[in-house]
Amino acid sequence: MRTWSTTFAAATVLAGTVLIPSSAGSAHAAEHAAQHAVGHGVQRAAVRAGGHASGPPAPTLGACASGQLCLWGKPDFKGAKRTHELSTLDINSCTALPAGTTAQSLVNRTGRPVTTYQSAECAETGEFQTYPGDGVWLPQSPYQVRAFKVWER
């Protein structure tokens, strides 16, 4: 079982080894520290000595500009993307997605709370969830989103 202190200590040792310059063996030492950390249940640091990424690529978050609500048709910010600008949305009103379409992942960067609904009419008889507007990335909605409301702060 890994604990926060074990993870932090191993990451600190690894980071310190990576950042020590001008030692002929520092790249080797960094790799050794990384292997040691992995052997003790600690994940590898994202950058090795020399600035190269290690391990599989980190998952990418959906690109969505400030002031926008972005919805994707598939999980993990994939599929058709729909972008809604705060300046063009009716606050406190139900906005249905086009008939026959749903969203499975979203980013809320509107600066306002947004409630997503399983119902295309924003009915609360189905599933619904409110997400704060200070920057939320949701790679997988627990239900098919068919409508949303942007709320006044």
Rank of each mutant, 00 (worst) to 15 (best):
A29G: 05
H32D: 14
T95K: 12
G39Y: 11
K149E: 13
G41A: 06
C70R: 03
K78T: 15
V107S: 11
P132F: 11
L106R: 12
G100H: 00
E127M: 14
S141R: 08
P57Y: 09
Q144H: 12
A30R: 04
A80T: 13
S26H: 05
L71M: 12
G50R: 06
R112T: 13
G51Y: 02
T101W: 06
V114C: 01
T88S: 13
A27S: 08
G16A: 15
L69M: 00
L61N: 13
A45S: 02
V13T: 15
D76V: 07
G41M: 06
P139I: 08
S66D: 14
A103T: 03
T130F: 14
F8P: 04
P113D: 14
T110C: 05
A96E: 00
Q118F: 04
A99C: 00
S23D: 13
I91T: 14
V13I: 15
V145P: 02
A27F: 01
A63G: 05
P59H: 05
H40I: 14
K81T: 06
Y143I: 10
G79A: 01
I91C: 15
R82W: 03
A10K: 03
Q35A: 05
A49D: 01
W151M: 14
A33K: 02
P142Q: 10
G25L: 10
P142H: 07
R48D: 03
T83H: 09
L61G: 12
Y131G: 08
Q104I: 04
W4Q: 11
A11R: 03
S119F: 07
P139E: 10
V136Q: 14
A123W: 05
N108L: 00
S141I: 02
Q104S: 12
F77Y: 13
G73P: 02
W137M: 05
G55H: 01
A49F: 04
A49Q: 09
F77G: 04
H32I: 11
Y131M: 10
W137H: 12
Q144E: 15
H36R: 06
C122A: 13
A15S: 14
E124N: 12
C64D: 08
A53K: 01
T95G: 08
A45H: 11
T12G: 01
Q129D: 07
L86C: 02
R146P: 03
T6L: 11
T110F: 00
T88C: 01
H52Y: 07
A15C: 15
A103P: 08
A10H: 09
A46K: 10
H84P: 00
D134V: 14
E127W: 13
S119H: 11
Q129I: 10
P59I: 02
N108I: 02
A30F: 01
A27L: 03
E127Y: 06
R82S: 12
A34S: 14
Q43D: 11
